[in-house]
């Protein structure tokens, strides 16, 4: 299946793109991040990230479906 992945802040710089379409066999968000970490060499451990699926915060075990939009959210620093 295909997911659309959004990148922000340090992950965006590291991936050198703000979004990409990813072919994945991962069943959940955790598996997808592991795949992308291997591809891009992200240094950030999943324990530091939050996940959003289709614009809502979700758990790492969130089951992914074809066409989902997934974002891995680094620690925020607004204000």
């Amino acid at each position: 299946m295909k997911c659309r992945v959004l990148y922000f802040a340090a992950l965006r710089d590291h991936a050198n793109t703000d979004a990409e379409s990813v072919d994945t066999l991962a069943s959940d968000a955790r598996g997808l991040y592991a795949q992308l970490r291997a591809r891009h060499g992200f240094g950030m451990d999943e324990s530091r990230l939050r996940v959003a699926v289709n614009g809502e915060f979700a758990g790492w075990n969130h089951a992914l479906r074809d066409g989902d939009e997934v974002a891995f959210i680094p620690p925020v620093s607004g204000g």
């Binding site: 922000f8 802040a9 974002a71 959210i73 620690p75 925020v76 620093s77 607004g78």
Partner: peptide
């Protein structure tokens, strides 16, 4: 807002470097 809203700050330093803050 500071702890939950997905907004990130990139600091541009006087020495020419920059960096995202991910506290």
């Amino acid at each position: 807002v500071k702890s939950r809203v997905p907004i990130w700050k990139n600091e541009h330093y006087a020495d020419g470097e920059s960096g995202w803050l991910h506290p």
